[in-house]
């Protein structure tokens, strides 16, 4: 946001009314048109989200029969959701698992991606083989993993601990992280790093103070996606969590779905409550992506 304040954007700028050159005027008109398109697309995209929020204030019966009626809006669903869900505990558990799993997954993937793009293997084929080994994980549907991972957690003594979810979540994120990191690293010329090595930088300093800053936008993107993944992951959470004290937010919505009963209002309200913290997290990391612009400029 500070950027936006620092340099007022032309679309809203109301500078001194000087006659503009025809080129400038055309540029300005184009920008206005583009802004209009951007607003329109954004509006279309968020319309369904606004709709969940609206539905979350309606009684379940209205949601099913007349979702457009606005006659009985109220907070009943939220009261109900707050009363029947251990929300604080859910958020605490989710944050703990997300922070641990995402850090672990990102750190190990970063190390691997560095090795796969920057280090010189004696056998080049081995290097690309390892990379494809990781990338193949992208094609694996989670349901193939459920049963064996449960057994693995039991065998490793992780079952009933947070580790039971942290390790598989971190492992599942490796293919995605590797794809993004190796892809972006490959796009960067290695000159600065070579310069740093000539300056006498060791492996760790090279990673942490040279490569990491360059990768900032990518890492921010990866963190966002991984956190969103942990927040929404359902199949593992529903199978690997046995202790009611360890439930995560991704299980919140399903709590309203019984064998013969579904509380649509409760689902919508809990969905809204899960959504908002995630949007806040996104807004936070998004600044890191923007900040990356300046970091990227350093090397220029």
């Amino acid at each position: 946001m500070s950027r936006a304040v620092a340099e007022p954007t032309p679309a809203v700028a109301s500078g001194p009314r000087q006659p503009l050159s025809p080129a400038k005027r055309k540029q300005r008109r184009t920008l206005l048109a583009l802004a209009a398109i951007a607003y329109l697309i954004t509006f279309l995209v968020i319309l369904p989200i606004l709709w969940i929020v609206l539905l979350s204030f309606q009684p379940s019966a209205d949601i099913l029969n007349d979702p457009l009626s606005l006659g009985h809006l109220g907070l009943a669903n939220y009261v109900n959701a707050v009363q029947s869900l251990p929300l604080l505990r859910m958020y605490a558990n989710t944050f703990l698992i997300a922070i641990a799993a995402v850090s672990l997954g990102t750190v190990v993937s970063f190390m691997a991606a560095f090795a796969l793009t920057r280090m010189v293997f004696r056998h080049r084929r081995l290097q690309s083989a390892v990379k494809f080994y990781f990338l193949a994980g992208l094609a694996v549907p989670v349901y193939i993993l459920l049963f064996p991972v449960y057994r693995l957690d039991l065998a490793l003594g992780l079952f009933g601990t947070y580790g039971a979810l942290i390790l598989p979540y971190a492992a599942v994120s490796i293919p995605f992280n590797t794809l993004l990191m190796t892809g972006f690293l490959a796009d960067f010329p290695a000159e600065i790093e070579e310069a740093a090595i000539i300056d006498g930088a060791g492996l760790w300093r090279l990673c942490i103070s040279v490569v990491l800053p360059i990768m900032r936008p990518v890492i921010a993107t990866i963190l966002i996606f991984n956190i969103v993944y942990v927040f929404n992951e359902f199949p593992f959470a529903s199978i690997l969590i046995n202790d009611p004290n360890m439930v995560t937010v991704s299980l919140a919505v399903s709590r309203f779905q019984g064998q013969f009963t579904v509380d649509y209002g409760g689902m919508m309200a809990s969905a809204t409550m899960v959504l908002i913290p995630q949007l806040v997290i996104y807004a936070f990391f998004q600044r890191q992506i923007i900040a990356g612009m300046t970091a990227g400029a350093v090397k220029g």
């Binding site: 641990a100 750190v107 009933g160 601990t161 947070y162 580790g163 942290i166």
Partner: peptide, 12 residues
């Protein structure tokens, strides 16, 4: 990360 791992170990 290290705390979480320690925690999960303790919780076992």
């Amino acid at each position: 990360t290290s705390t979480a791992l320690a925690l999960s170990a303790c919780a076992a």
